[in-house]
């Protein structure tokens, strides 16, 4: 573009450019401002415990002892568990709906899956308390203990409430996200790609494996990462099911605690400044972990999407 045409660009376009730029900047400003404010409020706790806050395993408001590790552990473990369960199922749902099901079935099931995403998390929590937890306690956990009891993961008293219940409810909650986004990116795969595979003598599964999934992989990863984001921050349902005990135990049956849950539970009872500031610091850490995981996820999507040399991504 020459200088002249630039100068004569319409006032409207320039205004639009400025306005959208301002909006884009406002998001950044908001993020940094939030981070800064939390950092300030967490000041007393950061001054007192330093790095030990992150590695500390004791959370005792009565003795003014605050360590965040149990909560970090609980959040990461439940989210990981949720991803491990929801990713294969979500992908399976998406593959079935896009590549196998006839249109009528696809429409009904896709609608139901989307409905899952619309259910408020407190309802999930209630369902978890009255149905999931008792079922885990009476059926699933004894069975797991019987068959896989040699693993530390499946040892201890079957309580129902605990890490497993928290992870499972998260899995159910992020399943629609993963299924819907994977489904959409699979639907966006050009039909020529499918036909290219079929014409080479691919079976349906081989077609999905060589033509559909590779084409959609960066979008699928994006969906999984969105699911992870939701799992990390989910508060209500997890609080209702995780058992709320700040311990680091290897067993999935044991009660645990998550960062979001401790903030929600204890914020109103934080009776002195240090307590409050410790809770804010947990919020700051959650903020940081979410940020880091998202950056990491971006990098992962890039490196996966790049493919062989000279390609377009």
């Amino acid at each position: 573009m020459s200088k002249k045409t630039k100068l004569t660009a319409s006032i409207g376009d320039q205004t639009l450019r400025l306005l959208t730029l301002l909006m884009a900047i406002s998001v950044l400003v908001l993020m940094f401002w939030m981070g800064w404010q939390m950092f300030q409020s967490a000041g007393p706790s950061i001054d007192k415990f330093g790095f030990g806050f992150i590695t500390g395993r004791v959370w005792d408001p009565v003795k003014e002892q605050f360590g965040a590790l149990p909560f970090i552990y609980g959040t990461l473990m439940t989210s990981l568990l949720a991803l491990l369960i929801a990713t294969p199922i979500g992908l399976g749902v998406a593959i079935f709906l896009n590549e196998m099901a006839v249109t009528k079935v696809r429409m009904v099931v896709a609608f139901l899956v989307e409905m899952l995403a619309a259910i408020p998390s407190v309802v999930y929590g209630l369902w978890g308390i009255f149905i999931l937890a008792p079922w885990l306690r009476e059926t699933i956990q004894p069975a797991l203990a019987k068959w896989f009891g040699f693993l530390p993961l499946f040892q201890g008293t079957p309580l129902g409430f605990g890490m497993l219940a928290g992870g499972l409810i998260l899995a159910i909650m992020i399943l629609p996200t993963i299924a819907a986004i994977s489904g959409e990116v699979m639907a966006a795969v050009p039909n020529e790609q499918r036909e290219a595979a079929l014409a080479l003598g691919a079976t349906k599964w081989e077609m999905i494996r060589i033509a559909v999934l590779p084409y959609a992989k960066s979008g699928i990863l994006g969906g999984i990462m969105l699911g992870l984001g939701r799992a990390l921050g989910e508060t209500m349902a997890v609080t209702m099911l995780i058992g709320n005990r700040p311990d680091i135990l290897p067993s999935l049956f044991a009660p645990a605690y998550s960062m979001a849950a401790v903030i929600a539970n204890e914020f109103t009872e934080a009776t002195y400044d240090l307590y409050l500031s410790a809770l804010v610091e947990i919020g700051l850490i959650l903020f940081g972990i979410t940020l880091i995981l998202n950056v990491f996820a971006r990098l992962l999507v890039w490196s996966v999407a790049r493919g062989p040399k000279g390609g377009i991504s």
Partner: peptide, 22 residues
Amino acid sequence: PVALRKMVGMVFQKANPFPSMS
């Protein structure tokens, strides 16, 4: 049909190489 398509190859109107493959 899978075996048939190995005997009857096809080239499409629009070139459709698999983009994730070399």
